[in-house]
Write a protein that binds this DNA or RNA. Structure first.
Length: 720
DNA sequence: GCCGCCTTGGTTTTT
DNA sequence: CCAAGGCGGC
């Protein structure tokens, strides 16, 4: 603060000259001292360490508003990066409230992945991609890996394709290409590493051939594009002057590398994060990026937000104690509350999982009787399967509830089938999509026919669609080969179908085309019959109904994108500097959108469900960023909370503890922590008991005054 | 090529 | 206990 008075002076002169927006100062109203310091700081690199519930998003949004209103930074010179779409949407919404709707047109507030996608679409050919490349979702990635492994005669039982696929992704997330990875392999490497390397080599080549990129490829490609192309890199440096990153503790190696590359010598980067809430280490998130940031970026100002606006002090005391057992924290934060002492945290020691779910439901019922809305209550657990007992008990007591998580709409088989048809229309080389639906619904194109086709494609080094075309041409020539003719006869139905689909795509609107597509491919009928056979035809989420919801979703997308300025159109400096893509194919835009913006559950209108008054059930992972007045942390048990799987290393134990901390800090008014002495799991009853985190917590308060918690025992006789 | 039985395995989740 | 995928029989 002191040593930057010069900057301050410069800035205030600038401000005077430009007639500072009188509204600018209102942005700072109601901020506490450290929030104020962060928001109104001079232009520079910043690391904001924001404890749970300390107004992180508010600071981020206010800072952006301050950049625009006070420093007169053009929205197009700002990039705000989030980890999830949910966070990106929230940020845009809150920003719109503060600085108006028009800003988000030119301001990039998006996930790492969609930002990289935009850059790759704008500079596709520079990145070695053909415009119109498709994105492989996880499902497609695994099926591609599986196909390659079978081709390579690798036992897919010994080495699970999903493991190999995620190993490949892990390498990409560390910026390691197939060639580099193979050089790291030695004879001593474990078999699965060797297999990963072998498959990675082929996988990389085939992805290029099929003109498709998986999720981690989006990042890696962009990083390579920026590294190898000075002109494009400097173009971005000129554009992105102020870069802000949310949930920085969740960034992985390749995302960090991207940040370093996208920030120019006179750009500023502001990152917000909480090392104590880093719970995604198992999928590559690297908390040490926070430390690296201080080292790699110049003159970083650190701001600590520790004043909590969410919970009572007793809840915060428990949270502070739990996280206090972690060593190696970036900074020891002690959360300080704003809302008084509150009730003691109640620990429920239950005889078994049935008494636990009964006790919790009972308390929810009495809370509701005393006037608490169901939507203000949450049940949080470590593992998804723990929700089962609570679902049953709540159902029996007629307490409404919603479960978050579970199968995602865009991961359902019927939706993926529909998407695969769309993908091959956008990208003919996408064999992975083609192989998914060439015989779905059944067209009597079995493995033998497919193999025949693949042989031709391999010989000619071309896609399967191309191979079919060659076959067709051959059949119409002289000297027709008999086996080829019979092969063509088998696939002709599909060839013709593709032709019809192509015509329809050109002549119809996107949603009309999609509806027509589902009809003529037979997917509607196929899934309607399947639903009927399995007696699911009247279910709310029957597969047939889901296909209908897909159409609603496309219609919604259509009506959003007919608005004048489509957000995706604005590639950086695209009009001046990029020769790619004039008008984007709406189908391609839609596909990119749903693969990257995979919405959770959709209701009949194709929008995410909310608004009903119901108790919230979810994992502690998915509760991050949320808050509830009443929180029940259930199954707080040995072998569940420090998960049995990762209790081996200190590192993962610390992460499990952070997960407990995240759970505790969701509660505003009251917190209950429950555990069972016995739990029936996968059919058999096991003796469990309190989590070690609970033991160390209770031990800490032994013999002390002002203990913020109480323990109640609930015997099996209490409920039945 | 399809249906059904049987084996097998079952943290966390986003893009 | 339950869901999904593989394989064998028709």
């Amino acid at each position: 603060m002191q040593d930057n008075s010069l900057y301050d002076m410069e800035n205030s002169l600038l401000e005077d000259a430009l007639d500072a927006d009188p509204q600018a100062d209102r942005i700072l109203e109601g901020l506490n001292e450290s929030q104020h310091e962060a928001v109104s700081s001079e232009l520079r690199n910043m690391l904001i360490i924001a404890g749970a519930g300390t107004g992180k998003t508010r600071v981020l949004v206010s800072r952006i508003a301050w950049l625009i209103k006070h420093f007169h930074i053009a929205p197009r010179n700002i990039m705000a990066v989030t980890f999830t779409n949910k966070a990106a949407t929230e940020m845009r919404e809150r920003l719109a409230l503060m600085v108006g709707n028009s800003v988000q047109m030119s301001l990039w507030a998006n996930t790492f992945h969609s930002i990289c996608l935009r850059l790759l679409r704008a500079y596709a050919s520079y990145a070695g991609l053909i415009p119109g490349f498709t994105i492989l979702d996880t499902d497609s990635q695994v099926s591609l890996v599986k196909r390659l492994m079978k081709d390579m005669n690798i036992d897919t039982k010994e080495f699970k394709p999903s493991d190999i696929a995620s190993n490949i992704s892990k390498q990409k997330e560390n910026g390691i290409r197939a060639l580099a990875f193979s050089k790291m392999i030695s004879a001593k490497s474990p078999d699965y590493v060797k297999v990963t390397s072998q498959v990675y080599n082929v996988y990389e080549r085939v992805c290029n051939q099929e003109n498709s990129v998986d999720f981690s490829e989006l990042l890696l490609r962009t990083v390579e594009l920026l590294e190898n192309n000075q002109e494009i890199r400097e173009l971005q440096h000129r554009r992105f002057k102020e870069i802000l990153v949310d949930e920085f503790q969740d960034t992985n190696a390749i995302q960090y590398r991207f940040l370093r590359l996208i920030a120019g010598p006179d750009s500023h980067v502001l990152v917000v994060g909480d090392d104590d809430q880093s719970i995604y280490g198992w999928r590559g998130a690297d908390v040490s990026n926070m430390r690296k940031f201080l080292k790699d970026f110049s003159n970083v100002k650190e701001v600590l937000l520790a004043l909590n606006y969410r919970s009572t002090q007793k809840i915060l005391d428990v949270a502070n104690t739990i996280i206090g057992f972690n060593s190696d924290r970036l900074m020891e934060k002690v959360l300080k509350g704003n809302f008084g002492e509150g009730e003691k945290v109640r620990i429920l020691n239950c005889a078994n999982n049935k008494t636990e779910s009964s006790a919790v439901s009972e308390r929810i019922a009495s809370l509701h009787e005393s006037g608490v809305a169901y939507r203000d209550i949450a049940i949080l657990y470590r593992n998804n399967y723990l929700s089962l007992d609570f679902e049953q008990t709540l159902l029996r007591k007629h307490i409404p509830f919603v479960i978050y998580g579970g199968q995602k709409f865009f991961e359902r088989a019927e939706i993926l089938d529909a998407i695969a048809y769309m993908r091959i229309l956008v990208n003919e080389d996408d064999d992975t999509a083609l192989l998914r639906i060439i015989n779905t619904p059944s067209r009597k194109i079995g493995p033998k026919v497919v193999d025949g086709l693949r042989t031709i494609a391999n010989e000619r080094n071309c896609s399967l669609i191309k191979a079919m075309r060659l076959l067709e041409a051959h059949v119409h020539s002289d000297n027709v080969d008999k086996t080829l003719a019979s092969l063509y006869k088998k696939v002709a139905v599909f060839c013709d179908l593709l032709k019809v689909l192509k015509e329809k795509k050109e002549s119809l609107s996107l949603s009309a085309f999609a509806d027509e597509m589902l009809r003529i491919t037979g997917l509607y009928q196929f899934y309607q019959e399947k639903d009927f056979k399995e007696g699911k035809d009247n279910e709310e989420h029957s597969r047939y109904a889901n296909l209908g919801m897909l159409i609603s979703n496309i219609k919604e997308f259509e009506s959003n994108s007919t608005a004048p300025a489509v957000s995706d159109e604005s590639a950086p400096e695209s009009t001046a500097d990029s020769d790619e893509k004039k008008e984007e194919d709406p189908l391609l835009t839609y596909l990119s959108n749903i693969t990257l913006v995979s919405t959770g559950e959709l209701n009949e209108d194709g929008e995410t469900a909310s608004g009903t008054d119901a108790v919230n059930l979810m994992t502690m992972h998915s509760s991050k960023g949320l808050e509830f007045k009443y929180v029940f942390l259930v199954g707080f048990e040995k072998d569940i909370l420090p998960s049995r799987m990762c209790a081996f290393s200190d590192k993962s134990l610390a992460e499990e503890r952070r997960l407990a901390y995240v759970g505790v800090t969701r509660a505003k008014t009251a917190l209950y922590i429950s555990y069972s002495q016995n739990r029936s799991l996968f059919g058999k009853v096991e003796a469990t008991g309190a989590s070690s985190f609970l033991r160390e917590l209770v031990r800490e308060y032994k013999g002390k005054h002002d203990v913020p918690l109480t323990i109640e025992s609930i015997s099996s006789a209490s409920y039945y």
